[in-house]
Design a protein around this nucleic acid. Sequence first.
DNA 1: CGCGTTTTTGAAGCCCCTCAAGTGTAGTGG
DNA 2: CCACTACACTTGAGGGGCTTCAAAAACGCG
Lengths: 247, 247
Amino acid sequence: MPDFAVEKLARYHPLTPQAIADMKAMIEQPVAMKHGTEIMRDGDDPRRGTIFVILKGWACRYIIMPGGDRQITGLLTAGDFTDTRTIKLAVSNFGVMTLTDATVARISSARFKGVLDRHRDLVLAFAKAQLAEESIMQTWIANMARKSARERMAHLLCEIVSRVSAYSEDLRLMVKLPFAQADLADLLGLSPVHVNRTIQAMRAEGLIQLRSKWLEISDYNRLVSIAEFDPSYLHYGEASRQPELAA
Amino acid sequence: MPDFAVEKLARYHPLTPQAIADMKAMIEQPVAMKHGTEIMRDGDDPRRGTIFVILKGWACRYIIMPGGDRQITGLLTAGDFTDTRTIKLAVSNFGVMTLTDATVARISSARFKGVLDRHRDLVLAFAKAQLAEESIMQTWIANMARKSARERMAHLLCEIVSRVSAYSEDLRLMVKLPFAQADLADLLGLSPVHVNRTIQAMRAEGLIQLRSKWLEISDYNRLVSIAEFDPSYLHYGEASRQPELAA
DNA sequence: CGCGTTTTTGAAGCCCCTCAAGTGTAGTGG
DNA sequence: CCACTACACTTGAGGGGCTTCAAAAACGCG
């Protein structure tokens, strides 16, 4: 379990070493989960006193549509938390599940709140991470509404490499990505058949390799231009832009 | 300007009369805006110390796509705030503009924070309203990704009548709705032409009337069943479901 | 090596798009 | 009061992107 999971928060707001240490101390009993494991069930009373952090692998938020289709509404990877709010609504209309084999840690809300009480910088970092997530949701709405399958696929792949590269200075263009094409279909709102054809077209153009659980971006610049990908919506590097209170 | 704008918050968390009074005192200098007026510009440095509340009419969050299309990512109506966070990110990737002629009030963040400091119930109410908004965003992602034009239109109209009815016990099935069909297209991610044909089909079936700035739902039950509309994602009535801290 | 899952391929069809033109409708000024 | 303008709505035609259904090929795991 990479102990750098927590450091990702520092991309949103600078953290003191003590805050980082206290966060790490809070993350205990990591659990290995198989792909497809429910972390939080939709409809569950969400007031159970536990939050989760992904240490390794991928998870997603999802909604089950009345017809039974699963639509994925957000991605979670190493360093992402399922929920960082101190309050919850009585019911939740989405679930969280692993997309790949993953390592996930439970955190008691009580301890979490205790740490937040001692570290104002952590409160700010989590708040900004939350704002960034809302920005991502808005971008997803716009992409689903307006972009073609090819553009959405390109955009998703750009987002993926950006997010796995959150810890490093430069982009990792070859990443482990054991998603089934059916998962990509649920991410993009497409049929699995069309996902397949879209990937094949991109492979044939020499844009990407995407086989046997690995993604390799062969021509990142062209992928960016197809996707019209502007990484500012991820709000990485927020910490370096003179963080400050509003007003 | 309806002074019940603030009361909407009480749907998320019970508020003391003093909290409501202090909120109302904070809302000063309402401004009448024509439809299509920018309230916050995307890309603007959002750290200006002002938030806005809609008192009358409709506004929206939107993203301008690289091609120039506008995609609306969220609706705001009477009682909705543009931003209730105490912190902001360095840049914003969306804007807020009026969709109809509207009355909007400015609130200084400093005063806003002062009121929050005195009323814990308001902090909880705003936090829950924020969670509800995220729930709406996820529902929009799923709808854009998976529903047909007809289903999306039906769902949007159901959401609209639910949201204008936030103050009353029962649903208002006839509401003023001066949206152009082009606005509906930007809301639904459709072409204006197809919005027109979709509306016409619904009119012909006796589902709705939607003309000259008024919407009337003629057969709400059938509209709900077409949309597969489950209002729980709006999280109204949250306040009556034993509000409580997590953990 | 065998079996379940995933990926690939083909065919047919519908949903929604774009382009383009025509019909209202509201507001303005002569 | 009517002509004029600007804009919103409506209608038609044609095309393409994505879907569904169905089946074959390839992969991966015991």
